[in-house]
Simulated scan of single mutants.
Amino acid sequence: MRKKTYAVRYSAGQPVERIFSSGIQYPVMQALPEEPLLEKNDVLRVLVWNIYKQQRLHWLSVLQNFGKDAHLVLLQEAQSTPELIRFATANYVATDQVPAVVLPQHPSGVMTQSAAQPLYCCPLREREPLLRLSKSALITVYALQSTQQLMVINIHAINFSIGVEVYGKQLDAIGEQVKRHAGPVVMAGDFNAWSRQRINALYQFASEIALREVRFVDDQRRRTFGRPLDFVFYRGLHVMQSSVLVTQASDHNPLLVEFQLPA
């Protein structure tokens, strides 16, 4: 029997909470949190990084230098070690992780650290057809100062598969919810778009849900077969700045993007 998909929420001073995907549909009417994600006219700062299960040195210093001032930190292959959880709960109001791979000590999966409690949290997981391991994704929604809500998708896409059927299935589960969301959207992560089939499927998917790609002038993103693996897509926002941080603290380089909400 396949295990239920869930997210684990870490908040300072609060017990760890499990949030299950069973029966959850978007949109969901919930009470608004006390604080929105952004102050009025603030720039939305987002860090996106496959952190490689924290297997290399200096990953924490990268987060401390570039993550603590971000409103959102979207990590892939994040292992819920005490050190990472301490950083997350010290700097963010809420941290949600979707365990994809249960390792001997700590599970690994996508993790979204946010400056406000999400209104909505939907964990997703898809099994690799060849390795039988799982990849995870997480959809969260946050209140803004206006009546709008921001949808954020953090994804680690299927890697090893023959063809793109399962790859497309993972994206389609996300697309169903994005199509029902009227506000701004950020979708980012490690898309494993290393083949022409995959990159075509990804761009077609983004086009269907009206998402634009963030471009990087000095593009130092991790590449496989000459194609980048990490992307940031968006709608309903303006890109102010975008950069790639070159580091040896992971096998991927972090992406930093600053967005401005339209007036």
Rank of each mutant, 00 (worst) to 15 (best):
Y10D: 01
G13M: 06
E17Q: 12
R18V: 05
S22L: 11
S22K: 08
Y26G: 06
P33W: 04
P36G: 05
P36H: 06
L37Q: 06
E39Q: 14
N41S: 12
N41K: 04
V43F: 11
L47P: 07
L47F: 10
L47C: 09
I51G: 09
K53L: 06
Q55I: 02
Q55A: 02
W59G: 04
K68N: 13
V73G: 10
L75Y: 03
E77K: 13
A78V: 06
I85E: 06
I85Y: 08
F87P: 02
N91M: 00
Y92Q: 14
D96T: 10
Q97I: 11
Q105S: 05
P107E: 13
V110L: 08
T112R: 01
S114V: 13
A115K: 07
A116V: 13
A116L: 09
Y120K: 05
C121V: 15
E128V: 09
S134G: 11
S134P: 01
A137W: 02
L138N: 12
I139F: 04
A143E: 11
M151F: 01
H156C: 04
I158Q: 07
N159C: 05
N159L: 09
F160S: 05
S161D: 01
I162V: 02
G163K: 02
G163H: 00
E165P: 00
G168M: 07
G168E: 11
L171Y: 07
A173P: 00
G175M: 03
Q177P: 01
A182W: 03
M187G: 02
D190E: 13
S195A: 03
Q197F: 02
Q204W: 01
F205P: 04
S207F: 02
I209R: 09
A210R: 10
E213M: 00
R215K: 14
D218W: 03
D219H: 07
Q220N: 15
R223I: 13
F225D: 14
F225L: 14
G226N: 14
R227I: 07
F231I: 09
V232F: 01
F233A: 00
Y234C: 00
H238C: 11
V239F: 00
S242A: 09
S243D: 13
L245Y: 09
A249D: 01
N253K: 03
L255W: 04
V257P: 09
